[in-house]
Nucleic acid binder design. Structure first.
Lengths: 232, 232
DNA sequence: TCGATGCTGTCGGCTGGCCGACATCGGGGA
DNA sequence: TCCCCGATGTCGGCCAGCCGACAGCATCGA
């Protein structure tokens, strides 16, 4: 589940072998981007692959009515904008910086070449894509089968697994996330997230420390997703 | 969109270069499986990668309450059971034959070796995973933002793009699918699918020919997803 | 030929969660 | 210092879609 931070499973750069990393780093261009800045948007051609060097970014769909469906967050070391690289056909999603960030970009053809000549990097890409596929699969399963209370609870658990670190008996989430963003990840309204989190706080399952979620692991097992509702 | 069948984008075997294919085919074991048979289930270790030679299979999650969330269908040539190969940790999903089928299996370590030594095959895997990631992303977007009518309509369009072939002005779907299965793909009830399809049939957007959906393309543009509801 | 079984079609009643609406709180810029 | 704006917290009304229920209608094996 949660684990010390240096190498999250999604940290592409860290997990890349030293030699491969050195080669890749010679191919990238570095760029700063401020909070709220768009890195790419749906419809653009998608010429590059990106890596987040510092900060935080989010990848999301935008529906015709302006509703945002948030697929995942990127933390430092993560690769994104990958999907369009091999398949082409333009960007389908938006990438936006959630904080002041630095990104590294590589031309897609160059990156494709890099993968073709560095098999272990290609395997790592496959691994990262597999993880995301699993993760989206779980979201779909939940959106189809679970009520909002359960979805919020499991979202927190997923975030903890991907972006959390242990502090004594607790798990702290390393990402900055709003209720609206959580709602966009699980397909419900901001209000539903607010009230569910309020309930979990009342149950002492979690607390908030300077805008970051803190999960009290010792209170977890007692809260089967179903019970929670009963304890209004 | 829809296109003549020989090479669907998801047809891994077809798209693999002739030489790579020959090598791969020497590594596989062939096995028959009857309609309804489980190829693998969640929780099992996941030692193999599979290819569908003939028939049809479905990949799905099963929630604790027995609800099925259907992620995708496999037609001949498609690869599946791939996600667990690189990342390990056991199967997360179920794979079940929807018809009498033949499958080819390869040990995961052997397949990993194959990919490491055949870069273009690895690129193809990345491409296939990217397509699925996109597809699941769209499902999530819709489940978050669209009502049932729209979801059903877009599901049909997606199925047509992946599994359809042109017949004059129409598109015929090559897969066998029940209303329940469609409901499981978009997170609604069987009844909602039935009534929405009934509506689309009344609008002459589609018809049914011996259990296969047939889309009348000339009737499509007039039916913006929103209008449909108005035409009860 | 005849049940058995699974899919399709249709109908009300009920409710989880959406949608406004509004009040409060806190941090950052002028 | 104050103001502004985005985020959080709370409430009531309302409705899309779920649920149960049941009636055709094919397909299949005996």
């Amino acid at each position: 589940m949660a684990h010390g931070s240096p190498s999250r499973p999604s940290n592409f750069i860290e997990r890349l072998g030293g030699d491969d990393r050195a080669v890749l780093m010679r191919l990238v261009q570095r760029r700063g981007i401020e909070k709220g800045g768009i890195i790419f948007n749906a419809g653009s051609p998608g010429k590059n692959v990106y890596f987040l060097e510092s900060g935080q970014a989010k990848i999301y769909h935008l529906s015709a009515e302006g509703r945002e469906a948030l697929l995942w967050f990127c933390l430092p070391g993560e690769i994104f904008g990958l999907t369009e690289v091999c398949h082409g056909g333009g960007r389908q999603v938006y990438a936006q910086a959630c904080e002041d960030s630095h990104i590294l970009s590589v031309n897609r053809a160059v990156f494709k070449d890099f993968l073709a000549t560095h098999p272990s990097a290609a395997m790592l890409v496959i691994d990262v894509l597999s993880c995301r596929l699993r993760s989206l699969g779980h979201v779909i399963e939940e959106m189809a089968a679970s009520d909002v209370t359960e979805r919020v609870f499991h979202l927190i658990m997923r975030l903890a697994a991907n972006y959390g670190h242990r502090v004594g008996d607790d798990v702290h989430l390393d990402i900055h996330i709003t209720h609206q963003e959580m709602a966009n990840m699980i397909g419900c309204t901001r209000q539903s997230v607010t009230s569910t989190l309020g309930m979990l706080k009342r149950l002492d399952v979690l607390s908030f420390q300077n805008h970051h979620i803190c999960i009290h692991r010792d209170r977890l097992p007692s809260v089967a997703p179903g019970d929670a509702a009963a304890a209004h």
